[in-house]
Design a protein around this nucleic acid. Structure first.
Lengths: 230, 230
DNA sequence: GCTATGCTTCGATGCACACCGAACTATGGA
DNA sequence: TCCATAGTTCGGTGTGCATCGAAGCATAGC
């Protein structure tokens, strides 16, 4: 019997993620920022040699892409679907792991506000999401999210340009389950735009350790006012 | 520097999936049917001894759960979120793999109609989805799906009981990207109900090799009429 | 009781691969 | 030109783990 199941082989991708060092690099890259080989080596706690071979595999496996800039090599996640895959892995792992030994200051900041590839996550992320829902700017049937007419008006009024959207294939709204909060935050084009807008306005600031976002009291107040958080 | 990133460790779960034999078992279990250890060993092309250790790991890692029945052990995916994770891995792998050597008859049947954990996938799955969309029973903003009032009426009229839904936390509608068609089909409670309903009515029949669905001409005609396929 | 079947445990084997030291190439700056 | 830094390649080491044969339980049927 020629048992040719033609299902794609998920083992290769999973195996790429399934190594400790590589997994650390990938989660670090969930910060959305492009990182160099040495930065990633530090993150994964390995020498630059081993990092090099790991990164070559990840690029070869099309999970990452590279940009060469002078003598640096900047690595980034291939696309949003890879980021999403990593996020769902994070979610499942978080729910399985009994409780992670969660101590240390970097920990708290990670829980408060962090970047999820290209949008806002953590406590602040879900609070903004809830505020949008409360004001009927988005509807949410449990796992999925749609922008209402009211929401369209609102986002237009605060500077989002809907004409640019048509070019893109990416959904405007997308809910993304937050692994630390176990509640939704907003992804998609709108999620990306909101985060960038907050950076532009100076309300948020990237921490040096990639994924964490620093929020000043002033910035937090502006966000609360702007999005009418409760 | 005590670099305690408290992010969950995605390596362990990914590593569980990242073995060839285990990956085959897991994809086989995407058929939704509970399978015994020997069936899974056959599927993965390994001896029962090795299968036993693999399955123990998968259960220990909470990707599967077991039911003992007499001298048999029935394995099943832990929950829908695991199934969803596997589906997104399938999608990504399918898009990365240039083209799988897709020959053999089991292949064609897999592409035509198959089970995706608990709902219909393959060509037939996306055709039904498109038909629902065309008739404005569901709306779809690109990646997410909502049931319309018209749709509620329709599904009530063909026997779906909406009162049962409130108990469940699962979304009624959920779009699920089909890895072979690269288009959406319907998941969620409604997707599950539709598949079961088709089985109940005798329009579809599980093949022996779990994931494939056999569709008779008569059954296909009934489905076309029932859901008004174009 | 005996036998067949389903699954597990143990022990041994062998391979894949993560890891690092050392040496090498490439880029940028003084 | 020379040095420092970023990254790669090569060779060797060690280990984790998938694999199977053989033997051991457990259940079902006779």
């Amino acid at each position: 019997m020629n048992n040719t199941t033609s299902e794609p082989n998920i083992a290769v991708v999973a195996n790429l993620i399934g190594d400790n060092a590589r997994a650390k690099m990938l989660t670090a890259l969930l910060g959305g920022k492009a990182l160099t080989a040495t930065e990633l080596a530090l993150e994964a706690d390995i020498t630059s040699q081993t990092a090099s071979t790991h990164l070559a595999k990840l690029v070869d496996g099309q999970l990452l892409h590279v940009r060469k800039q002078g003598r640096h090599k900047y690595f980034q996640l291939m696309n949003a679907s890879i980021a999403q895959l990593l996020e769902s892995l994070l979610n499942i792992s978080a729910s399985l792991a009994p409780e992670q030994v969660s101590t240390g200051p970097s920990d708290i900041r990670l829980k408060q506000a962090r970047i999820c590839y290209d949008h806002l996550a953590g406590e602040l992320g879900v609070e903004v999401y809830d505020a949008l829902k409360r004001q009927d700017f988005i509807i949410d049937n449990g796992s999925e999210t749609l922008l209402t007419d009211l929401g369209k008006e609102f986002f237009s009024s605060i500077g989002f340009d809907f004409s640019q959207v048509k070019k893109s294939k990416r959904p405007i709204c997308k809910s993304c389950l937050d692994w630390s909060e176990r509640r939704n935050h907003l992804a998609g084009i709108l999620g990306q735009w909101m985060l960038n807008d907050m950076f532009d306005k100076g309300w948020l600031e990237r921490a040096l350790d990639s994924r964490v976002i620093n929020v000043s009291n002033a910035g937090l107040n502006r966000i609360k006012y702007h999005y009418n958080l409760s």
